[in-house]
Design a protein around this nucleic acid. Structure first.
Lengths: 316, 316
DNA sequence: GCGAGGTGATCACCTTTGGTGAAAATCAGG
DNA sequence: CCTGATTTTCACCAAAGGTGATCACCTCGC
């Protein structure tokens, strides 16, 4: 008993003729005879009474008919369901991001994506970079976005959004009027940082390393678990910090903190897409991938495009 | 998209392993790989993520899984339904009979059959012989039972029950004390008959013809559409009649009519099974056929078994 | 570090299935 | 009696589907 047999059976029953069913199914009439015969043999029952000029269902055939219809309908349902999935009329996209992209970039992007594909449900999990990477490795999310690149077997990591760190100081800080300060001056100031391992902190460590300096020399007064907390601390005049331009934008616009340039340091940093290449993921994930590629320049508010982003994180 | 493919898919999903599924399905592991691959190609979607040491469903696979289960369940349902039909746990038997067998024999027989196969629904239609034969020809019933044989292309007719006609008279009739009467005497009496074409009447015509006489010579006072009506008329002393022993049994037992023997005439007549040999009919019909064959001697209350019943009706 | 054992993929090879056109049997209608 | 339409049967061929051998890869335990 298989599909083609059932389909043939249905059409013969419907059209009350082997020949017409054969024409409808684009096959020869002996093939139809053969299929029906096989079906009858496999079921151990005669399905049609072959009368003159028309065929009729027997008792067994009448029993089979509605069941066969339902089965074929079911197959169509599967096809339709998959088409919907592929056509992104429905589906599920599961994203994971660390706080900076997760709080400032992805909500907007997900909103635009959702307008394109209203049927696709999107979940965004926000956690630390380490957790996000673990999720990607464990296939719990389709795509991860973090501030720290990964170099790990089986995971692909590509730079996506060009962000930069900005040095911010509180309103009463002596640097408020300064055009720019030097790394030496920075390291002499009380410094507020995110916790070790966070993307922002790792970017800062990397930037200092590029000018031959290190956080070892800095006056770290606090390590806080969220960028917003860091900014609040800076606002309160507890120290200075370097945070993502994305997170600093609003406090800067409101005059709650001031931005000071840093001499001789390139503070651009990248946010990275992390995914498992051999994992097929959801159809929506593929579409989202294409979507953010296409939206790349719109979403990337970077000022300078001159430097090619590093694919890998430089060795420490 | 195929049955075997779906079944293979289900087992791979269930056992989370191609190898284990292959063992379970009694086929080689490459065959399983091939089936899954074909299914994936035909659906245009990856169904499994082949990880290390275990395979996992993808989004598309998760969509397919419950549908595939339902489809397979449906196939099992078909199998089960047909088995029930074949095992006579259910089904429908459609019989047609003329009044004599329909009112006196088949109810008992159907009762016994129903005790054997309680799940089988039985319909008995009662009508004149002509209508019964038409029903068989049109495949509206599985089996017909009438008092008149048929010789018709495509219909088979076999004698089944040995009945006989009895001559009955009312209580005040002068023949009440007679041992036997002659055909001549019969033809001189007011005679009550069934309508032309009825099995009983045709039997009588045939019996008369065998002794060189005919109804033309008779004094027909009434033609009534039912044997019960004929008996009532005889009870009322409106005339004499020949009716089936089956119908006469009760009025005779109650002394409402008297039976008189008829000299030189063999009044045995047969009831016939009529069916369309090439029509497969229902499974229950086959079982009923076997049932009445087996019950033949129990059901046949005939006294003498010496004469072989005629297969065909003699030419007039 | 390295073989043992287990996984799925791939390959060459073969059997079975399913399809074809030609021809035969059957039947209704002119 | 022939014609046209129908299903069945047949010889034949292509495709689907199965198998064992083998490969590449991974984990586990020594």
């Amino acid at each position: 008993m298989n599909l083609k047999q059932l389909e043939t059976f249905l059409w013969v029953a419907e059209l009350q003729s082997f020949t017409r069913a054969a024409k409808h199914l684009y096959m020869s009439q002996p093939a139809v005879s053969f299929q029906i015969k096989s079906l009858e043999e496999s079921l151990g029952a005669t399905l049609f009474y072959r009368g003159d000029k028309k065929v009729e269902l027997t008792e067994a055939g009448r029993l089979l008919y509605p069941e066969a219809r339902q089965i074929l309908r079911h197959f169509q349902k599967i096809k339709a369901g998959l088409d919907e999935l592929k056509g992104l009329k429905r589906g599920h996209l599961c994203l994971g991001a660390s706080t900076i992209p997760g709080e400032y970039l992805l909500p907007l992007l997900i909103g635009r994506f959702h307008r394109h594909y209203p049927g696709v449900e999107v979940t965004l999990r926000i956690a630390g970079s380490g957790q996000v990477i673990r999720w990607v490795r464990e296939r719990e999310i389709d795509l991860g976005i973090t501030g720290a690149p990964v170099k790990e077997e089986g995971l692909e990591c590509l730079p996506w959004y060009q962000d930069r760190l900005v040095l911010i100081v509180g309103v009463g800080h002596p640097w408020v009027d300064r055009e720019a300060v030097s790394p030496d001056e920075l390291l002499a100031q009380p410094l507020i940082l995110r916790e070790p391992g966070s993307g922002t902190r790792r970017s800062l460590e990397e930037k200092l390393a590029q000018v031959g300096r290190s956080l070892e020399e800095a006056q770290v007064v606090m390590e806080l678990g969220s960028t917003r907390a860091v900014i609040t601390a800076v606002q309160a005049g507890l120290g200075v910090s370097l945070v993502s331009a994305l997170a600093a934008a609003e406090p800067l616009a409101l005059g709650r903190v001031y931005q000071v340039n840093l001499k001789n340091m390139d503070l651009t940093r990248y946010l990275y897409l992390i995914h498992a290449p051999e994992w097929p993921g959801s159809f929506a994930a593929g579409a989202f991938w294409d979507f953010i590629k296409q939206e790349e320049w719109a979403g990337k508010q970077n000022k300078s495009n001159k430097k090619a982003p590093p694919t890998e994180r430089p060795a420490p």
